[in-house]
Design a protein around this nucleic acid. Structure first.
Lengths: 222, 222
DNA sequence: CTCCATTTGTTGAAAATTCAACAGAAATAT
DNA sequence: ATATTTCTGTTGAATTTTCAACAAATGGAG
C-alpha cells in the first residue's frame, strides 16, 4: 500500500486527512486494489453501484455504448482521480456506464457502504470523507458543464477548437498532449472520426494548429 | 415562510431533517426569498458562486449562451429542486451558467458559506445538510449522464425519441407534458428548431407519436 | 372582438455530417 | 527484420442539419 502513497495523497477524496491517518482509515474502509490490462472492463454497465474507484496507475475511460453499438466517451480518469462515486452516492441499483482500462492500470476500490454509513468504530474521518466526496461531486458537475459546452457546438470544427482551447487553458500552455487517439477524440466530441481527421487537416493547413499524433499546439493565428 | 412548508419538505437538501427543526435551521442559515418575473435573470454567468438556490414556485432554466449568442438549455428546475449548488460547493469564483425564470417564480437563496463552514452555534444539522448536498450532487451527476445519453445521438429524430422515451419512463406514462416549447426543446436537444418541427411532423404522420403543444404521447407503434 | 406579438410548421437551398471504402503510416507481434 | 494489425488521413456519395424566409396558428392585451 505504501507505494501508492504519493497518488493517494493527491486524491481529492483524502483532502485534509493526515497521511499517518490515511492508512489507518483505508484499513477501516476495507479497501482493495485490483489490476486490469489494457481494454479490460473495470466496471460494466448494469452492475451494482457499490464501489467508489480511485485510479492508482494507468488511466481509465468512462464510456456509454448505445443500442446500436455507438460508443461515446464521457471522461478520462487519470491517477489519483475518482470514478463511480456518483452512482455509489446516489444509491442507485446499477450503474449506467462502463469503465474500461485505457492502458494497464491499478485501481483502488472502496465499498461505498463503508463511507456512507457511519462506521462501527465511529472514527472521525467519516465526516471529512463525506465533505470531500461532496466537493469532488461538485467538481465533477462543473466538468460536465464544460463537456456540455464542447458538445453543444454544432460543427466538428467548433467542437474541436472549443475542446483544444479548454485543454490549453487547463494545461496553461498552448502545446499539450491529449489523452485520446483519433477515434477516441471523435467519441468524446461526438462526431465522425473521418470528419474529424478532415477538420484537423484543414486547421493544420490554415496554420491554426500544429498536431502530431496526440500532441497539439494552438498557434498564434487563432 | 410557513407557506413554503410543503415545497421545502420535498427539497432533497432537507431530507431527514424534522420539520420542526427546519425553520430553526433556515433562520440559522440566514436564508432569503426573492421573486422574479418571467424571463428575468436569477443568477448570471460570471457572478460570484455564493448562493445555493431552491425553487419555491414557478420554474427556472439553467442555460449557457455562447460567444455567438447560441443558447443551450442544460436543465429545467421545478419547485423544491436545487440549483447553483455545484458552483457554490466547488468554491469557484464565478458561475459558468445563467439561471433564468421560465415563469414568474420565487426562489430561496442560501449563502453557501453558512453551509460549508461549521456554524457558530455548532448546530447538529450541518452534517446532515452536507450529507444531503452530497446525495443531491450525486443525483445531478446522474441526470447529466442522462442528458448526455440524449445529446450524444447523431440525428434530431434519435435525440427527440431518446428524450421522449426517458420522459415517458420518468412519468410512468406514455402521455405527458414537457416543460419546453419548441425553441426550448431544440435548445435542450441541441438541434435546429425548424428541423425539430419537421421531425415531429414526420413522427406524427408515421403514427409514432401524438403531439399537441407541449403534450406528447408515444403510441404503441414505437 | 380585433390587433399584435409570439410560436409553430413548411419549404428549398446551402453547408456539414455521416458512411463506406481504401491507402499509407505507425505500432505490435512473431 | 518481417508480417500483421491498428490507426490515420482522404475521397465521394448519400443523408442530415442548418439557415432564412414566410405562412399559419396561437395567445394576450386593449
Amino acid at each position: 500500500m505504501k507505494k501508492y502513497y504519493k497518488i493517494l495523497e493527491k486524491c481529492p477524496l483524502f483532502d485534509n486527512i493526515e497521511s499517518e491517518n490515511l492508512f489507518k482509515m483505508l484499513r477501516c474502509l476495507g479497501v482493495k486494489v485490483e489490476s486490469f490490462d489494457k481494454k479490460y472492463t473495470i466496471m460494466s454497465e448494469g452492475s451494482p453501484a457499490r464501489y467508489i474507484g480511485i485510479v492508482l496507475s494507468g488511466s481509465a475511460q468512462i464510456i456509454q455504448v448505445d443500442y446500436f453499438g455507438f460508443r461515446s466517451i464521457l471522461s478520462n480518469i487519470e491517477p489519483s482521480q475518482v470514478f463511480g462515486e456518483a452512482f455509489a452516492c446516489a444509491e442507485i441499483k446499477s450503474i449506467p456506464v462502463t469503465v474500461v482500462a485505457n492502458e494497464p492500470c491499478e485501481v483502488m476500490l472502496i465499498d461505498c457502504s463503508h463511507i456512507l454509513h457511519t462506521c462501527s468504530n465511529n472514527c472521525g474521518f467519516h465526516q471529512q470523507l463525506i465533505f470531500n466526496l461532496m466537493k469532488d461531486l461538485a467538481a465533477k458537475t462543473i466538468s460536465f458543464h464544460q463537456k456540455q459546452e464542447i458538445t453543444s457546438k454544432r460543427t466538428t470544427r467548433e467542437k474541436l477548437m472549443t475542446y483544444l482551447s479548454l485543454q490549453a487553458k487547463k494545461e496553461g500552455c498552448n502545446r499539450f498532449q491529449i489523452p485520446f487517439n483519433r477515434q477516441e477524440l471523435a467519441d468524446y466530441l461526438e462526431v465522425d472520426r473521418s470528419g474529424l481527421s478532415v477538420e484537423i487537416s484543414k486547421l493544420r493547413n490554415e496554420g491554426v494548429l500544429y498536431s502530431k499524433k496526440n500532441t497539439f499546439e494552438l498557434l498564434e493565428k487563432y
